[in-house]
């Protein structure tokens, strides 16, 4: 039975199903990480950076390991890729299995794949579905690594792999 609260608009827009989004706690990569609570992989560093920079000194890009963020990465495609995969593992899996979809297209954009090469990218992702998602212990990092390896072996797509 749904809550019969006289709840109108907005405050509850975050909803009883997603209270995690509403709370702001420090820790890990800061607010961003809590926002992503329940999802595997790195917290959203970009989000964390935007929110946390208000409270934390220095640069926009996290450079201190104390905050629980990877110190070698900056907010570039690579990290953004991992962030995006982390929060969209399921929808990406669906899109890859189906060979099409908005989330897969967004990932292609993150990786810098041009429009002309997108069909090749989608086909590759579909063919790689089993190694990408079926192994136990699949994490966003492994998804990207496996994807990158597959792309390296493809003449059209190897140019998009950052070494």
């Amino acid at each position: 039975m749904k809550k019969l609260a006289i709840g109108l608009c907005c405050a509850f827009a975050l909803g009883s199903t997603s209270m995690a989004f509403a709370t702001e706690k420090a820790g890990g990569c800061g607010i961003g990480k809590e926002v992503m609570a329940g999802k595997t992989g790195l917290g959203s560093n970009l989000v964390a950076a935007i929110l946390n920079n208000i409270l934390i000194p220095n640069t926009f890009f996290m450079t201190t390991g104390i905050l629980g963020c990877d110190t070698t990465k900056t907010v570039q495609n690579e990290q953004q890729g991992e962030t995006f995969v982390a929060s969209n593992m399921d929808t990406l899996a669906v899109d890859m299995a189906q060979g099409n979809g908005d989330h897969l297209a967004a990932l292609a954009a993150i990786l810098g794949v041009t429009d002309a090469d997108k069909p090749a990218f989608y086909s590759l992702a579909k063919d790689q579905y089993e190694p990408l998602f079926s192994a136990s212990g699949t994490t966003p990092a492994t998804v990207l690594t496996t994807l990158n390896t597959a792309m390296l072996n493809d003449t059209r797509l190897s140019q998009y792999v950052t070494q």
Partner: peptide
């Protein structure tokens, strides 16, 4: 709360789907 993990049932269905060489149209 929605995690982004797939259940085993979902995985098995997607695996079968991925082997069908047809791209879904939205």
């Amino acid at each position: 709360a929605i995690g982004s993990d797939l259940t085993p049932v979902e995985r098995s269905m997607l695996l079968t789907r991925s082997k069908i060489k047809v791209r879904s149209d939205p």
